[in-house]
Design a binder for these strands. Structure first.
Lengths: 196, 196
DNA sequence: TTAGATGATATATAAATACACATCATCTAT
DNA sequence: ATAGATGATGTGTATTTATATATCATCTAA
């Protein structure tokens, strides 16, 4: 799935969550089956424009075609229109990161010989310096679950390594995204991400 | 077809025309059959998101989901990003309006007893005061054809009356559109236009 | 006049969406 | 433990898109 489509899908999902709607609630509002909402959010269907417009509408969003060169400016406006939402989300993420850090402290007491856990600690400390958005919340929650469920086994360690990798990807994605508004090498430059 | 979809479709068409592309040329660029482009532009199909994104991409556009309250600001940016295109289009329209005015002068010499032609002259003078965009160019061209083809007959007069009506609608649409960016009763407020 | 371009329309077909409905796995609250 | 909520997944079906291809009507240039 091309980046542009993933962005749209993730924006819809984030908007739904930000409004505190379940898929079933959105289903009723938009007149789309819940199963279809699930597929849409998971990129399992290539939805029609009419469906997109209707779902966006009930989420107080509108589909706009923007000249590529204006995308950074537009995204800046879009972002600045969500201060209250962003604060609430940021707080959730901050809380979740703290929980993850605490889980890691406990895990370090039990398994100080596992270097990946120390690495995870460093990673989390670095992530705490960023302003993380909602799509990343799931990643952090998953990480917390993994650390809390960790057992000193081959499978457990594989999960830890996977989590470490995911958090590194998250960090890299954030670093890559941060200058988005200021430069023309934006993450939203489709020349990079959409080769056909 | 809901207003939101029509806006998107018309934006695609305008972008194609602004780039001087035929449907066949766009077809090759986007990998979509020309027949399908025609249907899309005429609202005969409800295209899939992937198709929309691909066609928009080759037209240097990007699909963005904008919070409804930010739409006026975003549209302002979108419009301000097209100075060169708008000048070119405006010039075409200005030229066409001049032609129409000249056609009307000639028609007045021949048919000064027909009040509709005088009305058309007034209407065209009023339209010349506005900054008219591309979608309206066709209307003006049609008007010019009608006036040039005018014959002093019942059928000819009916065509003139129709043209007068169309230009009045055009004028009204423009007047209705002008304050779009400044007020919340924007033409893009879906609460008004999309009842389901 | 002919040739070519343009956009609209038609036919046939494969693939996919949208929809209704059901069910499952998981989580949370009581 | 049970009930309810949530999101994911599956089945069956009607409808539509997307595609390939062709053709038509109209316009324009030579």
């Amino acid at each position: 799935m091309a980046y542009a489509i993933e962005y749209i899908v993730q924006t819809l999902k984030a908007a739904r969550q930000n409004k505190g709607l379940s898929q079933r609630a959105l289903s009723k509002l938009a007149g789309v089956p819940q199963s279809h909402i699930s597929k849409i959010e998971n990129g399992a269907v290539d939805l029609r424009l009419s469906s997109l417009v209707e779902i966006a509408r009930v989420l107080d969003l509108e589909v706009i075609l923007v000249p590529r060169k204006s995308v950074p400016a537009v995204q800046s406006i879009v972002r600045s229109s969500r201060p209250a939402e962003r604060m609430a989300v940021a707080q959730s993420v901050v809380t979740e990161l703290k929980r993850l850090q605490q889980s890691l402290v406990i895990a370090m007491h039990k398994h100080s010989e596992i270097k990946e856990i120390a690495q995870l600690q460093r990673q989390v400390r670095e992530l705490q310096r960023f302003n993380i958005a909602l799509p990343e919340l799931d990643t952090v929650r998953d990480a917390n679950r993994t650390v809390q469920a960790f057992k000193d086994s081959t499978k457990g360690l594989a999960e830890i390594r996977k989590t470490l990798s995911e958090l590194q990807n998250l960090r890299n994605a954030i670093v890559h995204t941060l200058p988005a508004v200021e430069t023309v090498t934006s993450a939203y430059t489709l020349d990079e991400g959409d080769h056909g």
